[in-house]
Amino acid sequence: MTSNNTRAGSQVLAQLIANYQDAAAKKMPLCQDCGYITAFAKLGNMVVIENGTLSEAIQGGVAAAYNNHNLRQSVIADAFFERDNFKPRRMARIHTSLIRGEVLKITIMPKGGGSDNASRIKMMKPTASPEEILEFITDTVKETAISACPPLFIGIGIGGSFDTVGTLAKKALLENFEKPNLDPKLDKLETYILEAVNKLGIGPGGLGGDVTALGVSVLTGPSHMASLPVAVNINCNSLRSVELEF
């Protein structure tokens, strides 16, 4: 089972490859779930924004993209009180960091709901071993991967605090999955996690095989000495982002 993909699993991979080609040829969104936008903005201290705010510009641009290009708007105004699919809503969550210089960089990342649902955060004990952290990651994949449209990309955040570790894991998904990590420590860790995940035998579409994940990316950061926050942000087979520089 784990040495190869099953026939059904191989069919999933063939359909996904056809899908990438069809989407490009027909200019249609890869997935009907055109996502919830996370925008990471880096704003230089020498940049002046006229006729509005950075937030208004990003929200306006995102709304125009969805309205003008037949993208499915999956965002609702309020998760508890206004689950109305047509009420006005802000389409993007924006993280802004203030940097030096005359540059404005914006990374736009649409991410599907199903794979975000498959993600988990755990506040682990600061004495937890690497094996225990790996176990949390593989348990998350075991529990949720079948529904999250594998083969997956897995972003992992270790460090920060309860509120920031999820963002760290999401940011990890923006790293280049095609090249080895330049940091040898992280590269070794990512390879170790990827091998463990692909040994689970979940496979493409959950139908069995050794291609459960195509890549793992880890970001670490400072944390309180009492804490070891770990976030596993699962991304489906449609890993989508674009970086704009002004």
């Binding site: 069919q11 999933v12 056809a18 899908n19 069809d22 890869l30 708007q73 529904s147 999250a148 489906c236």
Partner: peptide, 29 residues
């Protein structure tokens, strides 16, 4: 049955007709 999650353009070619039956206010739902 399961269909391939994420292959939404590919899978759309097998749909030959679409007709609203109920609850238009739900949009895609």
């Amino acid at each position: 049955f399961v269909a391939t999650g994420g292959a939404a353009v590919y899978l759309s070619q097998f749909i030959k007709k679409m007709e609203l039956i109920a609850w238009q206010e739900l949009g895609p739902e």
